[in-house]
Design a protein around this nucleic acid. Sequence first.
DNA 1: CAACAAAGTCAGATTGTCTGACCAATGCCC
DNA 2: GGGCATTGGTCAGACAATCTGACTTTGTTG
Lengths: 144, 144
Amino acid sequence: MTEELNTGLLLFLPYRAMEARVFEELAAAGFEDITPSQARVFQRIASTGSRLGDLARQAGITKQSAGFLVDQLERLGYVYRAPDPDDGRARLIRIAERGHRGVEASRAVVARVEAEWEAHLGARRMAQLRRILADLREITDPWR
Amino acid sequence: MTEELNTGLLLFLPYRAMEARVFEELAAAGFEDITPSQARVFQRIASTGSRLGDLARQAGITKQSAGFLVDQLERLGYVYRAPDPDDGRARLIRIAERGHRGVEASRAVVARVEAEWEAHLGARRMAQLRRILADLREITDPWR
DNA sequence: CAACAAAGTCAGATTGTCTGACCAATGCCC
DNA sequence: GGGCATTGGTCAGACAATCTGACTTTGTTG
């Protein structure tokens, strides 16, 4: 039964499962101090550093909220702020040493969960899923 | 390019887009007083009524939080509580008149957005997407 | 250079969530 | 059938995450 569940909810369920697994295993790996909200911002920091406003826009929150979360990430040692050489008003948020270790750990969990999904769906349908979602992103990700 | 984006984020993007559209158009249709959190609970109320604990479990929040949200939904006229004939401890949360109108309105928005997605993806891949997600639900929805 | 725009910050309010303690009805089991 | 663990729910208090509005500083442009 494909049921009457709307596609939004169908998308949400595995998303939440992935998020829950990542936080669970991250906590077990010594990163128990990070929250989902912080992670949703952290996740979007470019490798060359990002501006607060860009992070806010991509995460879909106000820059005040993003600033609040970045303050915490900074206090926890995941990121640091540096002046933006190109614009005196702006500062770049960059990933610190501990942040890099967290990225590595979470990448490992994601890979593990994706492998489980692939084992359930089969490689072919897993690839289809990713292709279709990437395609859908074109009309559903105005923050790109 | 399918890129390096993890599957979790790929799922989240269209989910958020759907949610944003629903709230936007619901507000325009006179339902501007409902919040996403309330809706995530409301959405799970069975047509015959649901218990608070079940709603909480399905929504992935504590029953205290669910109770808080149901209180608001009740004050706004979307639901009402009635005793559960089968269990004196429990009460059933049921959809009220205004709630039914809201359900109708949101169903219409969801259908519209799904139609847009289908127009972008093609009917065949849209159906594939739903089938794959429904299948994935088997291992990612322990709250079912 | 004067005005306007953009990047952030500060202050205060509100919302959503949690944990812990509690009450009442149910169901079991000896 | 009387005790007691379980279940459904509420109350109280704390904290986390978010918003709006006002402000400062820096850059851009006519």
